[in-house]
Structure formats: C-alpha cells, structure tokens
Design a protein around this nucleic acid. Structure first.
Lengths: 216, 216
DNA sequence: CTCCAAACTTGTAGTGACTACAACTATGGA
DNA sequence: TCCATAGTTGTAGTCACTACAAGTTTGGAG
C-alpha cells in the first residue's frame, strides 16, 4: 500500500493508466481533426464519440466540456504567470512580461506546429463557443497573474497588480490578433525572420504603451 | 401605404405594439426578479414563462437568449464608444475616455439604481453564464471602439487603435471590480461623496498607467 | 493462479436552452 | 365586415451535459 503510493508519485504507468491516456489522446485527436475540418459547431460530441469508437459518456469522462476537446493540453496561458513567479524581483514587471512574450513568440515561430497554427486559430475564430472559452481562459490567467504579482512583488498594492495583469492580458490579446495577421496561410520556414521582425515591431508598440503610456 | 410608412417612422404606437412592449417588459421584470432572488442558474426559462404567464416560446420570441432577459436595455457598454465619436479630435484619446468614465461614474452614484447595483453585480458574479456574457459584451464594445477611434482619429494606425481599445477595456474592467469593492452593501446617499473620492483615486491610478505607463 | 475491489467504460434516462414549424388568436386597416 | 399580418402558443426535436446503475478490465493480495 505504501509501495503503491510511492509508485504513484513516481512515474507509475501500468497498462491501465497507459490505456486511459491512449483513449484520451485518441478522442482528442479525432475531435481536433473533425473540428478543424468541419468547424467546431458543426460537429456534435456524439459524432466525435462514434468516430473515436467510444461511448459519448467516455468522452465526458475524459473531458469536462466539448471545448476541452480542443483546448486540451494547452496550459499555454499559464506561461506568463510562471514567468512572473520565476522573475528576478529586481527586474521591472513589464520588462519581464515583454521578455517572456518575445521568448514565447520565437519558440512558436520555430515550432513544428507553426504550419497548423492558422487553421487552428481560424477554427477558434469561427466558433462563438470557442471564442467564449478563449475569453474565459484569458480571465483565468489574469486572476492567477494578480496572485503571482502580489507574491513576487510584495510592494505592489492590489489595485496595481490588477491593473498590470489586466493590461498584460489586453496586450497579449492584441498581439495574438496581430500574429494571426502577420502569419500567412502557409508560413515558410525561410521567412520566419520576417514574421519575427514584424511581431517584434508590434510588440514594441504594445509594450511601449504599457511602459511609457500612450504618447507619454 | 405611404401613410403607414410615415406613421411608422413617427411614434406609431397602436394597441398591438403597446401590448407587445408590455409583454416584453413584464417578462423582463419577472425574470430579473427571479434571477436576483434565486440566482440566474437556479431559474429555468420555463419558470420565468410560467411566472409571467406566457409560453416558453413567447419568451424566446422577445429575447434571443436567457442572458438577454437580464442584460436587456443595457447598451451601457456603448457609452465609451459614443464618447469617442463625439470627442473633440484635438483632445487626447485617453483623456476623453477618462473624462467619460468619471462622468458616467458620477451619474451612476446619483442614480436611483445605485441601491440595487450590488445585488445586480452579485447576480452576475455568481453565474458563469452571465460572466461569459459580460466578457462578450466587453469584447463587442472593444471592436466598436476600434472603429470609432479610427474614424475620429484618422492619424491613428490600426494597431494603435486596437491597443487603446484593449487597454480601455481592461481599465474599465478593473475599475468596475474596484467599484464593487468600494460600494457597501447598502449605499448611503450621504456617503456618495466618499465613494466618489475613492473611485476617483482608483481611476487616477488606472488611467495614470494608461497615460504615463507603469512607473514611467 | 484465483479472485476481489477499484478503475474504466457503457447505456439509459433525464434536464435545460434553444430551434423549427404549424396552428391559433388578436389587431389594424380596407 | 372581413382579411392579411403580427404575435402567441404547443409540439416535437436537437444538443450539451448529468446522474446513475450495470458491465468490463486490471492490478495486486493471498
């Protein structure tokens, strides 16, 4: 029994757990494929279940909502919170966030997922339900960031923390839209530097506003 | 026929139209009462219909979604957009928005609805569906504001307009939360000046960040 | 190896928002 | 007086999601 607990803390991956994750991954993959192909709202959970050859219930056993089928794994929105938590407390808050955003951007531009990014973004953009979910994620990040800011920068008053978190959230939103604008339908690896440059320029405008105010 | 068109353009209010508006108002009032009393998610549309003595279908004839029963009439979120459209183009954008917010705040503090404001806010806060709707409204305002900004300040580039709109939206959100914090459960008319002062201070912090940057 | 309890999966039966549609009723105007 | 139209209603259905009970699989104890 103790052994069991210990092994669970480590990387216990029995057949059971493995199968479970396998099923989960299968459902998620099948669902993502269908959603990207036909649109989120045009695919029912029942269809996903049938395509993955599982019961509808099984889908909901693994994913609390239909939206989670697409927003799986992605705790991307926790990134900036972690950046704050790990920040050098001497560094300026905005600078830390800006640096994080640029790092993240460069990684994304060199990721294998870059080619599917546009289609993914479009799928979200075309579904009211997914847009709502994205907004909810953003708010969740904001709440966590307020906490992180107060933990890491104790001299910051609550209102200040809320202002910074809200402004970063707004900045991120604008930059994500800009990214969708900058990235062509079929991004070329050879042009990554160009995309990067365009985004750096945009980030400079956006974070510049946060750092120095608008026309300040 | 021409007469009909003309009369429609004017204030044609026949019995039919009057009854319709009456029904609509009745449904909205009954629904708001139930929602505030028992919580949005604890009341079904069927209950609202029964309480208003109409068919469920009739509810949906007047209100496209359940959320609209509460967020009726309120086009409050259009205010800042109108402020931009009517702004003196010579004035600074942020200053216009700040002034609008403060004006709006003062009106609200002296409105007859102030006493029910907290209960209303709590109703929203306690319902995931209403929170989602509020986020959607905020985004809608932001989109309209981008357009208004570009119309009124042609020298502003699209990215700049998006940044300002997003930052104002973030600012408004933070200030609304602050307002809920400042306003006591049972606001006293004799203390309005106190609430106002506290909010002015908060607005100064928030808009100060927009104008001059964070610690800029 | 045997067998049990826990973990997973599945089917059934619901709830609740919302839609489509057809039938009914009241109203305004000819 | 009468009809076309606007507004109301009931019926039937879809879809996400829940509760629950009944399988099925698996890990581990004896």
């Amino acid at each position: 029994m103790l052994a069991k607990l210990l092994s669970m803390e480590n990387q216990e991956v029995g057949r059971r757990e493995r199968k479970k994750q396998q099923t989960r991954q299968l459902i998620s993959d099948v669902a993502t494929g269908l959603f990207m192909e036909r649109g989120f709202d045009q695919v029912t959970v029942a269809e996903v279940a049938k395509a993955a050859d599982v019961a509808v219930q099984t889908v909901f056993n693994h994913f609390p909502t239909k939206e989670d089928l697409l927003f799986d794994e992605d705790a991307w929105w926790l990134g900036p919170v972690r950046a704050i938590r790990e920040a050098d407390p001497g560094a300026g808050v905005i600078e830390v966030l800006e640096q994080y955003y640029l790092d993240e951007l460069r990684m994304r531009l060199r990721s294998e997922h870059l080619v599917t990014w546009k289609a993914f973004a479009r799928t979200i953009e075309e579904s009211p339900a997914l847009l709502a979910r994205r907004r909810k994620n953003a708010e969740e990040m904001e709440v966590l960031m307020v906490q992180a800011l107060q933990d890491r920068y104790p001299q910051l008053d609550p209102l200040g923390a809320r202002v910074i978190a809200a402004q970063y959230q707004a900045a991120q939103k604008v930059l994500e839209a800009e990214f969708a604008r900058v990235l062509p339908e079929q991004p070329q690896a050879s042009h990554v530097a160009r995309y990067e440059e365009a985004m750096e320029e945009a980030a400079d405008v956006v974070f510049g506003a946060l750092k120095h105010g608008w026309r300040g």
